[in-house]
Amino acid sequence: MSEGILEFPQRPGGVDPELVAGVEALLFAAGSPLAVPVIAQALGEPADEVRLALQVLEQRRRDSGVVLDRVAGGWQLRTAPRFAAAVHHLLGTRPQKLSRSASEVLAIVAWRQPVTRPEIERLRGVDSGGVLKHLVDRGLVRTAGRTEDPGRPLLYRTTALFLEVFGLPDLAALPTLAEREGMVRGLGPTDEEEVPPASEVSPPEGAERSEE
């Protein structure tokens, strides 16, 4: 792949290589996902230019060891999965696992949010309080108000960290379980504040859209 082509992807005028480099520096320094407006403000460049720079960077890094991904409403530099074993070895860590019960509760919250604990327990048929608390402690799930039902149970939602950990740009990127009609109910970000830097939303062409 020739870098020259990537630097100027069919755009009249192309993208300033220095802007691409600047975007990369910010992403590296931040570590966490950065939304386009945040990058644009830090560099003092128009958001549209930043978006083009991100596309260039995404393409250029595609086959490298650190790739650029859209996650949690922003962009983040992440290691390529194929080096997971080596990185774990280097850091002396082990792949973090979720218990089966944690996976199930997380799945219910992810696809049905906002959802109450009684609803989760009805679906699983067992007490899920401990697992839920564990997920809240790990920052994958958070409370989001209460229902008006008797006892006013708390509602639970997934967090921005959930999107980051599972590599999802937003909740709409969760695959629809079409054939499993029961789970589809309550799918997707139905209201307000889920996707944190709310500006950057799903599909790839979103990168072409302008911020308000």
Binding site: A84, L98, S103, L106, A107, I108, L123, G167
Partner: peptide, 20 residues
């Protein structure tokens, strides 16, 4: 629910396959 959990398990995850 179990099927959905299986789907979730297939995603490459930070701390498992991916590092930031």
């Amino acid at each position: 629910v179990k099927a959905a959990a299986d789907v979730l398990e297939t995603f490459p995850r930070v701390g498992r396959e991916i590092h930031v």
